[in-house]
Simulated scan of single mutants.
Amino acid sequence: MTMIAADVETNLENTVKANALSQYLEQHVPGFEGPIALEKFTGGQSNPTYMVQASSGKYVLRRKPSGDLLKSAHAVDREFRVMSALANSAVPVAGTYHLCCDENVVGSMFYLMEFIDGRVFWDPALPGVDPAQRAAIYSEMNRVLAALHSIDIEAAGLSDYGRPGNYFERQVGRWTRQYRASETERIPAMETLISWLPENLPTDDGRVSLVHGDFRLDNMLFHPTESRVLALVDWELSTLGHPFADLAYQCMQLRMPHDGIMPGLGGMDRKALGIPTEQEYLAEYCKRMDIEHIPNWSFYLAFSFFRFAAILQGVKKRAIDGNASSEKAHKMGALVKPLADMGLDSVLTAY
């Protein structure tokens, strides 16, 4: 896993010393032995994540950020639950060891999980990777997505992991409220999407699956040499919902400009790169899921742009308030307006 050593957050240092955390983990995690050293992973915008180097090996600690948080955000307990439920399933996840709900230990709820030494691809164009392997990597992503959406929810013990009813109706309402709670300026395209989405909800087709909520290339750890996913990570936004939301979210990211802070494949020659087109990627997914096509695609894309813009508005607000978990938070917040514009464009170009 790509990582840059950094000082542990001041809040964490002021809340608990490393030896106290080590003692806690020794008491609650079988086989864990200190002393420990902590290093913060870079790249995330959500829950602060740390490498825990102990005498018994390497682990990963993930916790809620400090400060005032939006209701239902940063649900590390849900991450722990879903990852534990997917152990030994067709969806690769890191092993989970312990969930700590006692905020006195490190200042917020956290959990400890397996450290997996894999590759993280931050650039979807996969520079430096052979074209044949690029195609294999995208096919593997497609396979993992289909496997996720094929999980037997009841058998996995996740039948109560989300609310019943029209997923998109609930999600539009939820992210409108979240956006309003963190709004810092008026963005015309967001206002249009907030009005358009509820008025153009697709008829509920009854599809319900486990959805990741942030399914993208850089949330996967790949084998060091093979085109194989070792773990799908960052399950904070997972729930029971509509599978096409995950699919559209991934395609949304790939439509974004390649030269931005969160690069996509916009303007790139996918054929030359060996990366499937959006139509080819959708066709491969449909084949794996045994469906003919995906209706209302423009709605799903517009919803994805809107939802992501609302998420990054929360990042922007936390950055302004001084609670963001990454130095990149201010730059990520600047994407809110461009994302809203792209969401509106995906609607306008479809009609």
Results as ranks from 00 to 15, higher is better:
residue 301 L to T: 12
residue 194 I to G: 00
residue 152 D to M: 09
residue 119 R to D: 13
residue 257 P to H: 10
residue 287 K to V: 08
residue 277 T to R: 12
residue 165 G to P: 03
residue 261 I to D: 13
residue 301 L to C: 12
residue 313 Q to L: 00
residue 140 E to A: 05
residue 158 L to T: 03
residue 192 T to D: 03
residue 329 A to P: 00
residue 137 I to W: 07
residue 63 R to L: 13
residue 115 F to H: 14
residue 285 Y to I: 14
residue 244 F to C: 07
residue 99 L to F: 14
residue 239 T to V: 00
residue 254 L to E: 09
residue 333 G to R: 01
residue 154 E to I: 11
residue 175 W to I: 02
residue 124 P to V: 09
residue 1 M to K: 02
residue 84 S to C: 06
residue 190 M to Y: 05
residue 122 W to K: 14
residue 286 C to I: 10
residue 337 K to N: 03
residue 206 G to R: 10
residue 139 S to V: 08
residue 223 H to Y: 13
residue 135 A to S: 15
residue 149 H to A: 09
residue 345 D to T: 11
residue 281 Y to W: 10
residue 342 M to E: 03
residue 324 A to F: 07
residue 174 R to T: 07
residue 329 A to R: 04
residue 301 L to R: 06
residue 301 L to M: 15
residue 39 E to G: 13
residue 186 R to L: 04
residue 142 N to L: 08
residue 78 R to D: 12
residue 265 L to F: 10
residue 265 L to T: 05
residue 172 V to N: 02
residue 6 A to H: 11
residue 254 L to W: 04
residue 221 L to D: 05
residue 315 V to K: 01
residue 192 T to N: 01
residue 68 D to C: 04
residue 218 D to V: 03
residue 79 E to A: 06
residue 9 E to A: 12
residue 18 A to I: 07
residue 171 Q to P: 08
residue 277 T to S: 15
residue 89 S to A: 14
residue 334 A to E: 03
residue 243 P to R: 12
residue 268 M to I: 14
residue 324 A to Y: 06
residue 47 N to R: 04
residue 79 E to C: 05
residue 343 G to R: 06
residue 307 R to M: 02
residue 58 K to T: 10
residue 212 H to F: 06
residue 117 D to F: 01
residue 313 Q to S: 03
residue 233 V to I: 15
residue 337 K to H: 01
residue 114 E to M: 08
residue 312 L to C: 07
residue 154 E to D: 15
residue 37 A to R: 10
residue 43 G to Y: 06
residue 89 S to N: 08
residue 281 Y to G: 09
residue 41 F to T: 00
residue 86 L to S: 02
residue 273 L to P: 13
residue 53 Q to F: 09
residue 312 L to D: 00
residue 67 G to D: 09
residue 23 Q to W: 07
residue 167 Y to E: 05
residue 184 T to L: 02
residue 52 V to W: 13
residue 14 N to W: 09
